[in-house]
Nucleic acid binder design. Structure first.
Lengths: 205, 205, 205, 205
DNA sequence: TATGAATGAGGCTTCATTCAT
DNA sequence: AATGAATGAAGCCTCATTCAT
């Protein structure tokens, strides 16, 4: 059975597409979208420039594809974590630690995150998808808090949506500080402090 | 009466420089650095393309100038607030509310913030300055917390640097969520929740 | 039952070739040679891009094939008409009316005629073939006039070659005016006027 | 007075524009629009490629400008001739001879005429302008015939518009035959035959 | 025969920067 | 100081053609 069967051909296509996606992601992260040129991507993926256009209609569409790809990974990561059983406190800690771990492991990808954030203001399609991601994510975490309130674990006089918004914001904001001064951000230590304060408050009593 | 005296000439120069800076800031915010071209800036400032090079050595230098300009405003805003007298709690609330107000008032400038963040990864000078800003800012806020610990207002078993890092991160992170879905971020309400939880904790007791 | 016999294979080949030729002709007429790309032709003929090269050595050769095909039709049309028996006047009228009819019926093909005319200047092979066509055509019509002169129907002090050249020129020239303003060219009415004047002259007497 | 005054600056601009127009016209005539590349035009005009875009928004717009320029010359040529005083016969002869002379003198420009004809089918703006030209031209010549009919010089049972259409068509059609076989078209001799037959008819009497 | 993938040359255009005036 | 013109280096993309299956 030669590799000319439809399935194999298509799997080759998938593979090539992924190579291009990976090459693009790395370069976008390393140099930014504007500074990355199509020929660089082609070179890194080991194909000719024209080949890219066999897989993506334009450089822009390639960017969107990278973005979608990245979103997919991201969503998968967190949703799985937040959805696990346990007390709210446990799950909150797990979420926070997973976020910390992800940041540390995927530091090379952080530049591409800020790249996408910038795109949020320039590209309606991307804003839409990003908004959707945040919405879903916020809903999941708010849900976690609501369960804690129902079970009596958490104060019920706090707006769980606001809480979720804050919990998400912290990690995005940390990214920036890390970017400006990596050694100033110890993901794990800050995570512990954050969870502690979120639960117990900073006030002396 | 031509502006031939040195002072006049220099004040005209200042004025023109500011016009160019403003034009550039607006366009960078609106379209991003890469998509903004020198001729656009010239047109918006009402001068010819060549004139820009009488005031700035290059487009890059113009960007850095806009950045410095923006940083100056920013620092002024916050430092003043955090430096005022009062209990730690008061000052924390004030800081948080000032941040909320600033966000709301300067929403049109937010895109330029993400633009700068992206630049953190591409431009060493900007990373350096940004790092400095964060460092100073973190130091000021951590100091605020330390005073609260000394005075017995706050628990003293928490790392004040981590706390400061988190406090700053929240607002940067909120910017992103606002970007993706403006109506989801009510700056003031979230601010109140944030301060409440930071002080009292979310745990039922 | 697969088409494995030589005849069948070859007739399939013929059929496929014709499909490609038709697709190409339509597209060349609609968009022009340069703007038509090989993949468009393939798509319209329902085959893959590579297949075209199984039937034609290059895009250029495909153009020449379309041209030859078109010439063949054209020559067939006219030669038949001019060669029919009758008085010179009858045959002249018949030629003129046939030309008028052809124009009206084949208006969609007119763009491809101008396309070919342009190619006269760029492509030696096409100029050669075109010259041959005109030469033959002119000879046939001049002959018609000569017969009229011999028989006393026409004045014999006129150069029959010039006359033939003019008679042909009129229809080609009309094509252009039709192109620019279709409603201004009533093929049949103009034809009658043309034949009338050619025979009787416009001078009052 | 240095050449920096507005008038001179603008006349320099005019001059440069004309150089570009001429270079483009020559190349379009020689190689056709599609085969001519912007860098060739720049080279022939002795400027850099980018300079062209200081004068024309795109290659397409340059083509249209060449076309307009050519139309202007053309209209000027003929309108002057047809508008002169004299009998209809005189003026008809003059028109025909002027057309013949123009063809002979401007043979290098003929390819660009067919180039434009092709464009008639592809470009609405050009079709519009071309239609306008033909309309005006036809009207002028038809008018000439009408005057001849009024004065009793010409038969009044012929449609002068058709006659005008034919008179114009002949020269456009001759261009094609000339293109295919230059030596077969003797502009002056054919012109005399054409006028003779148009006036006196070809019928023996 | 037929196909889809791949190639690579080259075209149009943009744009930061420089220059002559 | 200021300007409009000019430059030239890329960059994205198209497309005829070839290749592996």
């Amino acid at each position: 059975m030669t590799p000319s069967t439809p399935e194999q051909a298509s799997s080759i296509r998938e593979k090539r597409r992924r190579e291009l996606l990976d090459a693009a992601q790395e370069l976008f992260a390393a140099k930014g979208y504007e500074k990355t040129n199509v020929s660089d991507i082609a070179a890194r993926a080991g194909v000719s420039q024209g080949t890219i256009y066999w897989y993506f209609k334009s450089k822009d569409e390639l960017l969107v594809a990278v973005f979608e790809d990245w979103l997919a990974q991201l969503a998968q990561d967190y949703v799985a974590i937040v959805g696990q059983p346990g007390t709210t406190e446990d799950r909150l800690r797990r979420y926070a630690r997973a976020a910390a771990r992800r940041m540390q492991e995927a530091e090379v990808l952080i530049p591409i995150e800020t790249e996408f954030w910038t795109l949020i203001f320039r590209n309606d399609a991307i804003r839409e998808r990003f908004g959707e991601l945040f919405r879903q994510f916020r809903a999941d975490i708010a849900d976690l808090f609501r369960q804690g309130m129902t079970s009596g674990e958490l104060r019920s006089d706090i707006n769980p949506d606001h809480l979720a918004t804050i919990a998400i914001a912290v990690y995005d904001g940390l990214v920036l500080q890390w970017a400006a001064e990596p050694q100033a951000v110890d993901w794990y230590a800050i995570t512990e402090t954050f969870v502690d304060v979120m639960l117990n408050g900073g006030r002396e009593r």
